[in-house]
């Protein structure tokens, strides 16, 4: 039964691919993409989009990790609830409103877009860093402490490695949200693939709309895949074995 289902799956996949090809041809997507007047712009927008995502994710990761780590230190544990609430406000505000707010005091262009994306991406990373470190069994920390490990080494050698997979999950969620939200950056003049999408909608040009929407989807899928690969690289083999048992 399972085998038949698998074969059917493959068959369906081929059907979908063929269908997509036909639709792409019918709506003029292929023609649009190979048009020498259009495709350089697609590439430029793609790069703009990628740069927005990479910069904002890099900064959000640093801030998120730092906040998560600081809030798990003994001295700051008490204020963890309050701080997490403030950070979560960043995500409660609709993405469009965050962009608008950022524009109101940073003007238009790439800077406010990156700023808004950072605000939007910190929460999943910070929350999962906090949760991941708290979930490290207390006896591991106790053992490390009792053997005379200084606090910074406990953090680097015990707490963070054991929290890596949880942190990575947060990073992945933030990344996917970020890629999607970056499509809105066009609205405050930061370019990106949103340019194609919104213009396509306004002009009722399906091929242009798709030329923006498909790369965004593709970028999100690749990012998701890369996160999985990253997990295999940085999560200790010992932990993977432990979770299998």
């Amino acid at each position: 039964m399972g085998i038949i289902f698998k074969k059917l799956n493959r068959f369906l996949l081929i059907l979908i691919l063929m269908g997509t090809g036909i639709i792409a041809e019918r709506v003029g997507l292929i023609e649009y993409v190979i048009d020498p007047n259009e495709y350089p712009f697609i590439i430029i927008f793609f790069w703009q989009h990628l740069i927005l995502v990479v910069y904002s994710m890099a900064i959000a990761t640093i801030i998120g990790l730092a906040v998560g780590i600081i809030l798990t230190r003994k001295r700051f544990k008490k204020i963890a609830g309050v701080v997490m609430y403030i950070i979560s406000l960043g995500q409660t505000i609709p993405s469009l409103a965050v962009l608008a707010l950022a524009m109101s005091f940073l003007g238009i262009g790439t800077k406010p877009a990156i700023f808004a994306l950072i605000i939007y991406s910190i929460l999943p990373i910070a929350r999962n860093t906090l949760a991941g470190i708290i979930a490290v069994p207390p006896y591991l920390v106790n053992a490390a402490k009792g053997m005379g490990m200084p606090a910074w080494r406990i953090l680097l050698e015990i707490e963070l490695p054991n929290a890596t997979s949880v942190i990575l999950t947060g990073f992945r969620v933030a990344m996917i949200i970020n890629i999607g939200t970056a499509a809105l950056a066009f609205l405050i003049g930061a370019g990106g693939l949103g340019d194609l999408i919104f213009s396509g909608i306004s002009l009722m040009r399906t091929e242009q709309l798709l030329a923006g929407a498909i790369p965004v989807t593709f970028m999100a899928l690749v990012a998701d895949f890369l996160c999985e690969i990253l997990g295999l690289l940085i999560v200790s083999k010992g932990l993977r074995l432990a979770s299998e048992h």
Partner: peptide, 21 residues
């Protein structure tokens, strides 16, 4: 920290670090 490094420490939960060999 120096004091603890001078003493071996073994606990009930064993506490081997799962991320290390």
């Amino acid at each position: 920290v120096k004091l603890r490094q001078r003493m071996g420490y073994v606990i009930q939960e064993i506490g081997l670090f799962p991320n290390k060999t």
